[in-house]
Every structure is written in structure tokens, then in C-alpha cells.
Simulated assay, not measured.
Amino acid sequence: MSTAAPHTPPTATAAGGATVEFRGLRRAFGATTALDGLDLDVRPGELLALLGPSGCGKTTALRILAGFETHDAGEVLVDGKPVTGIPAHRRDAGMVFQSYSLFPHLTALDNVAFGMRMRGTGKAERRARAQELLELVGLPQHAARYPHQLSGGQQQRIALARALALTPRVLLLDEPLSALDAKVRLTLREEIRRLQRELGITTLFVTHDQEEALSMADRVAVLRAGRLEQCAAPAELYARPATAFVAEFVGTMSRIPCERAVAGVALLGRTYPVDGTLPADGPLEVLVRPENVVLRPDTDGAAQVTGASFLGAVTRLTARLADGTEVKADLATEAAAALPPGSRADITLPDRPVLVDRRR
């Protein structure tokens, strides 16, 4: 597994955030193993995204940290202290759910103030704090509205304000944007990141959306079958995936058959060094991202262009090799115009180490 890249806390206020540690965390539901020895550290004041397919254990880890779920083995520590046995309302964590979970009979202001009310905060103080938080999330004029009078994005802002009301040292976000449309999702993504940086709260953000994770997080932890595959800064995760699973889950990858060679692997008429460890046996494939595939018009080329998808400044071409392998290539749209479907092309990769996996 990969070690994380050096990280600078997002703001000077991040020191107020807590450290979070998962140590050998295990949880099973009957015959289904949700967490299988999860080891992960979250640094003070950072936003760490838990990314992975459905069933990988990311939400289970979040709920165990929040105190809503128990674990079978292992340990969860906040600021170096175990939290097992501490009830959820005493864990100094705020949680925002996918479904908003607002009280329909309370106004926006009263929803935000609810936690403070349960803690016995005086009416004047909690209402002043709730109004302050509504201003923080950009909804001061909606204080008297009920949830059914708010849009989905506005409800999620209220839910975020409620989670912040008790000044938690850890903020937990469980796919809070998945129920929203694309434009609102983008706006709230930026808003959550701004608030997190401003407040310096250690934040765990669960998502299955790779774009969301890469655009928001200081680091991204990719989970698979209850285990950590890699935890790294977004740029490192994308450019240097530690495993084939990470490579294919984060971004688009093509697989090209290759052969073992003295100095690496041979494909497309050239030999390339290997990034990482070469599988000990079996047939092999190289994993390559579309932007790293070079196509040039060539009537005798080894690839035939079979499709093109216009993406603005870039066009994604699909090229088929003689053995039927299909390879994606991102070219500047102007250059792609010289390679219409049906044309032949020379295909090469950059002269640098390649990621190799067993052939499927």
C-alpha cells in the first residue's frame, strides 16, 4: 500500500481540528465483512475523502467513528484517546447525512439550534448562534422557513449548519451531495470546502464520486472490500496509483496486452520500464490513461480510430488494435480532427515507467 504524501494543513486554524486514527478496524454483518482491518490516520484540520464502490466499508467506518455503529475488533482514537463506549452525543463530532434528516415541524433556525437546546444552552444564546451559522452558510433570510419550503440544496446547508452548531472537532459528511442536481452539487462542493478551510475542522467526507473526492479533499483514501488500497493527495493518487484497482477506479484507464522483457515490458513495438512490482507470473497488461496515449495519422499505423467523443477543448478517441484491444486517447480537438473514425494511426506511449497488472 502507498504511504501518504506530505501535507500542509489547509489554514492556520486547522490546529483546532482533532486527529483521528482507525487501527485494525473490523466489522461484519452476518456473512458480510464491511471492514477488514482498516488502518487509516486523519490529520488535524484536513479534509479526507473516503472513496470507493458501494459496500467497500466507507460509511460503516464513518458511523463507527460517529458512535452510531459498533465494531468487532480494532480501535478508533480521537486525539490519541479511544472512543469505544463513548455515546454518540459525547464524541464532539457533527454529522451530515445524505437524506438531510431535518425535523419537518421546526423552522430552519430551530433545526440549527436543536443540538444546543438538547445541551441546555439558553434560548437567547442558541438563537444568536443559530442565526450566525445561517449567515455562515448563506441562508440568514430563511430562518423562519420550514424544510418543505426549502430546496434540496438549502436543506443540506441547514443540515451542515446544524452539524456545526456545537463546534465539533470532527465533521462527518456521509454522501451529503448525492441527492442533489449537478449544478447545486458543484456550488455546495465549493461551499463546504470554503467552510472547512475557514473553520479548520478535521473532516471525513464519504463519497463514491471520484470527481467530488479529487476536487475537494486534501487526501483521498480509496477503500476496497473493507481495506485501504491507497491514501494520498489527489494529484498523486491520479498520477501514481498504487494498485490496478485504484488506477481504474480513479479516472479512466485502458488495458493493453504486453509481454515480459529484459528491461520491463514490451508493447506497441517498444520496451517500457515498470512502475512498481511486476506480477510474478501469468499474462500481463499495461494500464494507461487517455491523456498518455499518443495517436498520429499514419496510413500504415497499428491502430484504427473507431469513435470520437467531443469534450470541448479535448476530444476522446477510441482506437482498436489488431488484436481487438480498444484504447482511449485524449487529443486536443484540433489535432483529433485529423483522425476521423475509420482512419489509421500510429500509437505510442510516453517514455516513462508503466503500471502493469495481470491480464483479465
Rank of each mutant, 00 (worst) to 15 (best):
E229R: 11
E229G: 12
E229K: 11
Q230L: 11
Q230S: 11
Q230K: 09
C231A: 15
A233D: 13
P234Q: 12
P234H: 11
E236Y: 08
E236S: 14
L237A: 09
L237M: 09
L237C: 05
L237E: 05
Y238T: 15
A239P: 03
A239T: 15
R240N: 14
A242S: 11
T243E: 08
F245E: 09
F245V: 08
F245W: 10
F245H: 09
V246F: 08
V246H: 09
E248F: 00
V250F: 04
G251V: 14
G251K: 05
T252E: 12
S254C: 07
S254Y: 07
R255F: 01
R255M: 10
R255K: 11
R255H: 07
I256V: 15
I256G: 03
P257Q: 03
C258P: 03
C258N: 01
E259T: 12
E259N: 02
R260E: 01
R260A: 03
A261N: 07
V262R: 15
A263V: 10
A263Y: 10
A263Q: 15
A263S: 13
A263I: 06
V265W: 06
A266F: 00
A266Q: 04
A266G: 00
L268Y: 03
R270E: 12
R270M: 01
R270Y: 00
T271H: 00
Y272V: 07
P273I: 11
P273Q: 10
V274H: 09
V274E: 05
D275N: 13
G276F: 05
G276T: 03
T277N: 12
T277Q: 15
L278D: 04
P279Y: 13
P279S: 09
A280N: 12
P283W: 01
P283N: 06
L284K: 11
L284A: 09
V286H: 02
V286C: 10
V286F: 01
L287R: 04
L287F: 00
V288P: 02
V288N: 02
E291S: 11
E291F: 07
N292W: 09
N292A: 13
V294G: 06
L295E: 05
R296D: 06
P297M: 07
P297W: 05
D298T: 02
D300F: 10
G301C: 11
A302T: 12
A302M: 10
A303I: 01
Q304N: 04
Q304S: 14
Q304Y: 00
V305R: 06
V305L: 07
T306N: 13
T306C: 13
S309F: 14
S309K: 11
S309T: 15
S309C: 10
S309M: 13
G312E: 02
A313Y: 00
V314N: 08
T315Y: 00
R316Y: 04
R316M: 02
R316G: 03
L317V: 08
L317K: 06
L317D: 05
L317F: 07
T318Y: 04
T318P: 00
A319E: 02
A319S: 04
L321D: 02
D323I: 04
D323W: 13
G324W: 10
G324P: 08
G324R: 07
